[in-house]
């Protein structure tokens, strides 16, 4: 029982790291634009299908597949940004959300036309040995997830603190009107942030697909939902919170799956979301309520 708990927690942390990356993508876009891009998951799906197609047609290795996923996700995100965000006024958050929903449907329909089957194979990391830590087993693809997520977050933190683009991004997240008077090119920074988020999401999607070995067009819906839930649990607009939210979601899901079964896992996930909203409206990374209110006022 205790060993199960430990094993589930290890597995959950790995999957949770990938959730954290999805949430990070959402958070970057939300933080900079104050708008939700619910076509985020479907953009990743396009990338994943591009990678799967490349693998099936040309039986290429993991590196080209990875690059195809990344390129597919980023190019699709650029399309979403132009149509649903750049073309719509910044204060019309709902219009952008509805528009990105429409794009989502469009992308899903397009994939369903081109790939009419239900599931498709995705290449996996073959030939890597299982890692044993005492009685606990760590799947090698999970180790890859954990290491990649940690490295990405570290790189992102560094970039935000030390690069010019990172500083511009932070000014926009912190106080958009002040960013404007300081001469920040808001449209350009928003666009690049969108692409950055898609790249992070693409990496997460690649890792998840490679761990599962198969994909369906529903992976877009799945990625949007997991990313959104992890972001809300962690607290809207906080990068650290997004990551913590992802890890918590992963660990809780893995244990619920083991002890309660698949239906129990779904119920536990939504119960967790509900609890997070009621008990910690500012999220686990918790800005104080006064801070959140001041922020809300600022945005009005």
């Amino acid at each position: 029982m205790l060993l199960d708990l430990v094993q589930n927690t290890v597995d959950g942390l790995a999957v949770g790291a990938a959730y954290g990356l999805l949430a990070l993508g959402f958070t970057l876009i939300f933080g900079v634009m104050r708008r939700l891009n619910i076509a985020f998951g479907p953009s990743i799906m396009i990338g994943i299908f591009a990678g799967a197609w490349l693998h099936a047609e040309w039986s290429v290795g993991m590196v080209p597949v990875f690059l195809a996923v990344l390129a597919g996700a980023v190019i699709t995100a650029a399309y979403v940004e132009r149509i649903s965000f750049a073309a719509i006024r910044g204060d019309a958050a709902l219009a952008s959300m509805a528009s990105s929903f429409a794009i989502w449907m469009q992308l899903e329909e397009a994939v369903a036309r081109v790939f009419p089957g239900r599931t498709y194979g995705f290449p996996t990391f073959d030939g890597m040995p299982m890692i044993e830590i005492g009685p606990v087993l760590l799947r090698p693809e999970y180790l890859v997830m954990l290491v990649t997520a940690a490295a990405l977050v570290a790189a992102l933190q560094w970039g935000l603190a030390h690069t010019r683009f990172g500083l511009e991004l932070r000014t926009l997240a912190d106080r958009p009107e002040a960013a404007r008077v300081s001469g920040v090119n808001v449209a350009r920074v928003a666009f690049l942030t969108f692409l950055l988020a898609a790249a992070i999401g693409g990496i997460a999607g690649f890792l998840i697909a490679a761990a599962d070995g198969q994909i369906t067009p529903k992976i877009g819906l799945w990625a949007t939902i997991k990313g959104l839930i992890a972001m809300v649990i962690g607290g809207l607009g906080s990068l650290r919170g997004a990551l913590i939210g992802g890890l918590v979601l992963g660990v809780v899901e893995a244990n619920a799956q083991w002890f309660l079964g698949a239906a129990g896992r779904e119920m536990t996930t939504y119960a967790l979301l509900f609890l997070a909203l009621v008990l910690l409206p500012a999220g686990l990374a918790g800005r104080t309520e006064a801070g959140a209110r001041a922020e809300a006022e600022r945005r009005l």
């Binding site: 912190d174 106080r175 009107e177 002040a178 960013a179």
Partner: peptide, 8 residues
């Protein structure tokens, strides 16, 4: 109202 970047 100054509009500094409060969290930077």
């Amino acid at each position: 109202n100054r509009l500094v970047f409060p969290e930077m």
